[in-house]
Amino acid sequence: MNRDVPEWPEAVYFFGTCLVDLFFPEAGLAGMELLKSQGIRVIFPPDQSCCGQPARNNGRPDEARAVARQQIKSFPKAIPIVVPSGSCAGMMREHYPELFVGQPDEAQARAFSARVYELTWFLVHVCRMRLTDHGRPVKVAFHASCHSRREMGVHEEPRQLLRALANVTLLDLQRPAECCGFGGTFSVKQPDISGAMVRDKVADVTAAGADELLSGDCGCLMNIAGAMDKAGSPVRARHIAEFLLERSHEC
């Protein structure tokens, strides 16, 4: 994505996202460890919760704004906010400004949005992260979430990180840009359509011959991993941060 690369910061905030917090904390922790390994001080403000996307997407802008304000308040310093999710980052970066149009705190919301970065983008462009692969040969596929791809413009960066790992073979999916069918409440409002979409995604990953499926978004992961688990698939699914952290550790 074309955006200005900020100076290498001494410290960053980490916004874990509610999904990571409650279901995939190890993904968040891995993201923080990766940033720390770059010599950056990683601050985790304890008053953070959710970006407000579920409320916004369901036509509840007042509720979304209230939740957004809680985050804006919890990340006061003028330092980058790094997010291990392209979707939540997209909400905070692309949709907060529109959500706060005409509000008394519109300027604060805009200033907050401008500080939001997706994790892999930050690792590639700001940290210029160098990776050494200490893992065994493995074949992986990567799924970029739709919001990561289309709102944050992030889908090459994670692939770039994976390609830097010597023993990792990055496989191509047949339909890399197709939605996995998660879509938040869509998955329960239209369970049959969502189910058909995720089954197709699982079939795509399986046909590619991947040992692992990685993603930068835990919504997609919860969906795809859940469907693979239910179908008895041996493919492991996890957040790219966990994978990168594990590979870069000597064992």
Binding site: G16, L22, E26, L29, P46, D229, K230
Partner: peptide
């Protein structure tokens, strides 16, 4: 019930990222 038509039940983590971050000594400000 709608979620589990196609997927297994999501599992809540025993410890949230909030707790893990604190345990690992990450600064909170």
């Amino acid at each position: 019930d709608r979620w589990t038509r196609t997927r297994s039940k999501p599992k809540f983590a025993a410890k949230s990222l909030h707790r893990l971050a604190k345990e690992r000594g990450y600064p909170d400000a």
